[in-house]
């Protein structure tokens, strides 16, 4: 069953833009990305939108639908009423390039700032057999498709552009947590988490978890455990005292 839906789509670039009204045909079973493609095919051939897999696995079609960060390809039209006007805008945390496409290079910069996996220098390939219980905690984090919706929704950078240099964002703090929990990683990542990646700026309001299309428990399983590990290292007087005594005894 088809109907005509009302859409508002942001059109423009870094110099300015507007929300433009469109009426587009919607068919049963379609997602918002299908409608954006129909819009391109029938009314606005120059509409810029980034997309790839149409299956929620490539993380390309991130945008904001009615103000909420979502994947265009995973947002079913059946979640809206036929009378509802659907507003589609680019991600509002990153610089816009054109229409629905933003420049997400902030995230690649932050990815480069995380120290790579550091196994023991003398460990040869095949020498270590990973147990399932040791690896399953990080497997959750490996589901990340890098859609950067968590980075987009995080108010630390969304509402404060000036925090961008000091804050890695939930996606990369999760990466730090993943590496810190790895049985073979030799780096102590806790000082860097606090001083270089801005873990203390996270006030765990859980928006990253709310928008994650892979349903990764970013806050409960990565950010809070990482905060607790930093507490182990930097704020626990019992640990501090123990280390002091051990050093004196050595």
């Amino acid at each position: 069953m088809s109907y005509d839906a009302k859409f508002k789509v942001w059109r423009g670039d870094a110099d300015g833009g507007t929300l433009e009204d469109y009426t587009v045909e919607v068919n049963e079973g379609e997602v918002v990305l299908d409608i954006i493609h129909r819009l391109q095919a029938t009314q606005t051939p120059d509409l810029a939108v980034r997309w790839n897999c149409k299956a929620g696995k490539c993380g390309s079609c991130s945008a904001e639908i009615n103000g909420k960060p979502r994947l265009l390809c995973m947002t079913r039209m059946s979640t809206f009423t036929e009378e509802q006007t659907i507003t589609v805008t680019p991600l509002r945390t990153f610089p816009v390039m054109r229409d629905l496409v933003t420049d997400v290079s902030f995230n690649y910069q932050k990815a480069r700032e995380v120290q790579a996996f550091s196994p023991p220098a003398d460990l040869q390939p095949g020498e270590y057999r990973m147990q399932q219980v040791d690896v399953e905690r990080s497997q959750e984090f490996r589901k990340c498709i890098e859609c950067f919706l968590c980075q987009d929704v995080c108010h630390v950078v969304r509402d404060h552009e000036d925090n961008k240099p000091a804050f890695a964002g939930p996606r990369f703090l999760m990466r730090v947590a993943e590496l810190d929990m790895h049985p073979l990683d030799t780096a102590d990542r806790r000082p860097a988490a606090r001083e270089e990646h801005g873990l203390g700026m996270c006030n765990i309001t859980k928006c990253c978890t709310e928008v994650c299309p892979e349903h990764i428990k970013i806050t409960d399983n990565a950010l809070i455990p990482l905060k607790e590990r930093v507490v182990d290292r930097h704020y626990d007087p019992v640990v501090w005292l123990g280390n002091k005594i051990r050093r004196r005894g050595a």
């Binding site: 870094a14 904001e64 009615n66 103000g67 816009v96 404060h160 552009e161 000036d162």
Partner: peptide, 23 residues
């Protein structure tokens, strides 16, 4: 920390008047 940088209205971001479009 430098003064308020505009948040969603920071330079370079999509210029949308409403601070939130959530309905």
């Amino acid at each position: 920390h430098v003064p308020f940088s505009g948040g969603v209205h920071a330079p370079g971001r999509a210029r949308i008047a409403a601070r939130t479009l959530r309905e």
